[in-house]
């Protein structure tokens, strides 16, 4: 059986890839994908814990995370499309009418 620590290490690595992607990349879509990687890293650790603890709370939690992530994706893409119509770019640095 794969021990818990393996799941946690993979999940931590994925989470950091996501965080670095959000902080370093300037393409809106890639930043968005990095956020999804972070959420999936959380899902992985939840499922890992769930299996280790032999419970069901973690699975339920991860389903909730997926449902919310889906809602978030739809709203996020809608926002990106609506801003793209006014200003055809996906580079985050160009959204600077207001200073960050």
């Amino acid at each position: 059986m794969v021990p818990l620590s393996h799941y946690l290490i993979v999940s931590a690595i994925l989470f950091f890839i996501g965080v670095l992607g959000v902080l370093l990349r300037r393409n809106v879509i890639v930043v968005f994908m990095s956020i999804e990687i972070m959420l999936n890293a959380v899902n992985l650790s939840l499922i890992g814990f769930d299996r280790f603890l032999n419970q069901h709370d973690g699975q339920v939690f991860s389903f909730m995370v997926m449902a919310v992530a889906a809602a978030e994706v739809s709203v996020g893409l809608a926002i990106i499309i609506s801003i793209f119509r006014k200003k055809p770019t996906i580079n985050l640095d160009e959204f600077n009418i207001m200073k960050w």
């Binding site: 930043v31 996020g76 926002i79 959204f95």
Partner: peptide
Amino acid sequence: SNEAALKYFL
């Protein structure tokens, strides 16, 4: 308003 939404969302 668009820009505010994008920043808030991300």
